[in-house]
């Protein structure tokens, strides 16, 4: 449960994430991880709290403090505001229709937001945090237009894990192909966040989810239909190529500029670099911030 509150001492407005009371004996909790029934302090909230606590950046939501009282954990964070997904949903179709004045605003806003998305991701990667759940819903917009990254429940420390990582990360629509195709020994790292950021970028420009599959295979088909069926060279991005991949049609890559109507050539180029199949070839957050798309003065003009 997340509620808004105000400190009686400082007057500061915060949000408090209240985790239901952890039972003191094992076995009477419906969700083991939520309740931490037999593991002590619940893993997901431990990671969320510790990783948020490690961050100190204007584009990452600040965790103020954590309390634990009579089995209930509360995470107090700064109050930010609406998330990007809800903000996009609140805009009418006119904002996403080419040649309309309002579309120009969305294109400006996309660049303005995307720079902040990448700054937040770059910061997290630089301190060894792999986010694993980058999506519009996990970016909050503050009243001054600053974007704040949140949603650290699936994040983990260490960009060079020595053990296999779970495939059950990242909301399916934003999940990188190397996670879906990871086989029995999934090894993935920072580029998975860049793939998700690319999907987020496209969604901010078009108002629609870029790849919306209803299953893992469905998701792959959506990706391959737009970006082309991976070549033999690109198939090496995963450890095990499932046999069904060979049975798929050989789709040719579609034009991203047609899909993202109105987005300038630099923007399309940046997106294409964020959505490269091979994780090692995919642009890093730091290099993306140096991309020509972000060069020059692109301050937000109000319409």
């Amino acid at each position: 449960m997340v509620v808004k509150c105000e400190s009686r001492v400082s007057g500061k407005v915060m949000v408090v994430k209240r985790i239901k009371k952890m039972p003191s004996v094992s076995g009477d909790a419906s969700d083991e991880d939520e309740a931490g029934a037999d593991q002590g302090f619940p893993v997901r909230y431990l990671r969320e709290a510790c990783l948020l606590r490690a961050c100190n950046h204007p584009n990452v939501m600040k965790l103020e403090f954590v309390t634990y009282h009579e089995g209930q954990i509360e995470l107090f964070s700064e109050f930010v505001g609406l998330n990007v997904e809800d903000y996009i949903s609140s805009l009418s179709d006119e904002y996403f229709t080419r040649n309309k004045q309002k579309h120009e605003w969305v294109l400006q806003l996309g660049r303005y937001f995307m720079k902040q998305v990448l700054k937040g991701i770059d910061y997290c990667h630089s301190i060894g945090i792999l986010l694993r759940d980058v999506k519009p819903r996990n970016f909050l917009i503050s009243s001054d237009g600053t974007l704040k990254l949140t949603g650290f429940v699936l994040a983990r420390f260490s960009l060079l894990p020595e053990e296999p990582l779970t495939q059950q990360v990242v909301t399916l629509s934003y999940r990188a192909p190397e996670i879906i195709l990871g086989g029995t020994y999934p090894v993935y790292t920072a580029p998975v966040d860049i793939w998700s950021a690319g999907c987020t970028f496209a969604e901010m420009i078009t108002g629609r989810t870029l790849f919306e599959g209803d299953s893992e295979i469905g998701q792959l088909l959506k990706i391959f239909k737009l970006l082309g069926t991976p070549s033999d060279c690109n198939k090496s991005f995963c450890f095990e190529v499932p046999s069904y991949i060979e049975l798929l049609p050989q789709w040719q890559p579609q034009s991203l500029s047609e899909r993202l109507e109105g987005l300038c050539d630099e923007g399309v180029d940046l997106l294409s670099r964020m959505l490269l199949y091979h994780p090692c070839s995919r642009i890093t957050a730091r290099d993306a911030l140096k991309h020509p798309y972000f060069q020059g003065d692109h301050s937000l003009m109000k319409t």
């Binding site: 952890m22 003191s24 004996v25 094992s26 931490g36 029934a37 037999d38 002590g40 302090f41 431990l46 709290a49 510790c50 990783l51 606590r53 490690a54 954590v66 634990y68 089995g71 301190i127 060894g128 945090i129 420390f157 260490s158 060079l160 020595e162």
Partner: peptide
């Protein structure tokens, strides 16, 4: 009891100020 374990964890977390992300030599 499991509650004791949680309390020990929380005491450590408090003393470490919830900062558990320092890289080790192996990192």
């Amino acid at each position: 009891t499991i509650e004791h374990v949680k309390i020990a964890e929380l005491q450590i977390l408090k003393v470490l100020e919830w900062s558990l992300t320092s890289p080790t030599m192996l990192h």
